[in-house]
Write a protein that binds this DNA or RNA. Sequence first.
DNA 1: GTGGTCTAGACCACC
DNA 2: GTGGTCTAGACCACA
Lengths: 123, 123, 123, 123
Amino acid sequence: MAWQFDNERPIYTQLLEQIRFLIISGLYPAGSKLPSVRDLASEASVNPNTMQRALAELERSGLIYSQRTSGRFVTEDGVLIKQMKESIGKEKILTFLHEMEQLGYTAADSVVLVEKVVEEEIR
Amino acid sequence: MAWQFDNERPIYTQLLEQIRFLIISGLYPAGSKLPSVRDLASEASVNPNTMQRALAELERSGLIYSQRTSGRFVTEDGVLIKQMKESIGKEKILTFLHEMEQLGYTAADSVVLVEKVVEEEIR
Amino acid sequence: MAWQFDNERPIYTQLLEQIRFLIISGLYPAGSKLPSVRDLASEASVNPNTMQRALAELERSGLIYSQRTSGRFVTEDGVLIKQMKESIGKEKILTFLHEMEQLGYTAADSVVLVEKVVEEEIR
Amino acid sequence: MAWQFDNERPIYTQLLEQIRFLIISGLYPAGSKLPSVRDLASEASVNPNTMQRALAELERSGLIYSQRTSGRFVTEDGVLIKQMKESIGKEKILTFLHEMEQLGYTAADSVVLVEKVVEEEIR
DNA sequence: GTGGTCTAGACCACC
DNA sequence: GTGGTCTAGACCACA
């Protein structure tokens, strides 16, 4: 896994997103145990406090839970994971459409443009 | 014009975007004179310095220029305005697609999802 | 004559420099009569007040003088004109050398670099 | 370091130039950490905001970058630093030659005059 | 402690 | 009245 960050946004946010991706994509399957904070932190070359914060946020969202003695685990609730993915995705789409409107494109315009860009990318 | 801001991002950035929208959408036509910094600032209820900063950034992008003592004007270059709109739009699309991939959706998935959301919105 | 200005410096300064050039280069010969402020201003598309100020500064430097009733004239003192040219030139050279030192180039470095640039330009 | 300013040009511009000199000359080596905004500001006896602005401009040029919470650093790209020095130098030379032409000196004249002034200075 | 943002208020040159 | 600069002082998120 390539951990890399930009300076524009908080590190912990970017950590959160990347770990969330690992879970949502199934690389960290439902119910599996996460590496320790220390290990995750050293792997990502960040301060353990920062990693801690990212995990705490993920815990708040319900995607992971911590077992006092034995560490942190991905939720066993596969449905939750799927819902999470879908709701975040929808959120991103709405934000995107809103920003495009902000630029003067209607939702219909945006659809067409996205299709066009995707086609270009494929070529 | 309804000037409103969220607390997540710098105000000057949001000012910039909103003014840019006014230009791109043609509400401030090419070559037209902008209100003075002070007027814009008071209209948006921000400090003149904050507005100044937003305008300075817009100036750097070439969308507006300032005439030492007579005020600020929208660029006369209509083509530039159009290009700006398109390039910002494309940028937003690419960012969006990237974030969706980050969530586990392929570009093709994203297209379908956007279409679906737009349809829902219309209903 | 092509009158054109940039926004970085005061208009009257740029007017001054351009008129000074006309005198120093002999296009406005020693002793000759200058066009009226109004004519000069309209030709340069600037406010007469601005042109007035430029001429006043030139007058202060001794390059021109005004005859209450009959208008403004270039000084008859050809030597003064020549001296002016040389002293301004020397001033510019010293400023230039100082700026280059500011960049980490010695005076000797600067000489070599200027020669190199001039050669390139010629080619 | 002797921080001193003239009143003709914005302080932030002069700060920028002086810090740029420190970098270009190697006094602040590639990759090294700069003092904090506050420290630099107090050292130069200017308002932190003014120093901030100078640094922000330097950042835009690529000579330095900021690490959200750990400070600002000189770019690690030594080549960029060298290129910057050369391109700024060339720019200054072209401006100089242009100004001299404006005075009625050809490029060849200018070369000779610069040499003469430098010789005088040495004596 | 670090960079970053914002406000309030002042001053300046220019036209 | 216009843009531009500067100061002083405050607050914030982040690490």
